[in-house]
Amino acid sequence: MNVLLTGGSACGKSTYAEKLAVQFGGYLYYIAAMQPYGEESERRIEKHRCMRAEKGFTTIERYTNLKELTLPERGTVLLECLCNLTANEMFDDGGAGENTVSEVLLGIESLEKQCDNLVVVTNDVGSDGGGYDRLTMDYVNTLGEINCRLAKRFENVYELICGIPLLIKGELL
């Protein structure tokens, strides 16, 4: 079973994703793509870590090259989030650069082969009219393309609104 969760900032995606992953059960992996880059993000990471505490998740920090990741056992994987993974691949030294779309998609395919359930969190970065510099627009377009291609083949797609899942595709689990 796979689920793609989208929505804006602070719409309840993380909380819902964790609930869903726990519901799927089995060995629980949390793959964190957010790199600490100062006090604000460290606070966010700490907040997410606390939210997962005692729920039994094994946290794996993975910022790029997801396709080389090997999971020790099958189970349920929560990948959070594509907005960070995409930015890392595009802009980090050693990231995939212009091959970001295919690398991110290959990484997710590799996870799917190694687990029973996959919950992927992304972000709705294209909904504010754009008008940013070229680099930012490249990022918006790249993440948009990844979202479209994943949503096309994923069984379930939900949009989170004020903490409530809205069914876009598939069924609410």
Binding site: G8, S9, A10, C11, G12, I161, C162, G163
Partner: peptide
């Protein structure tokens, strides 16, 4: 709904957006 789109570069703007989202979750 202010949480969609590119995450703002200015910290104050990010915090305001996040706070709005969290408050709306609590209200919902």
């Amino acid at each position: 709904e202010v949480g969609s789109g590119v995450i703002p570069a200015v910290r104050r703007d990010r915090e305001s957006r996040e706070a709005t989202g969290r408050l709306c979750i609590a209200l919902a």
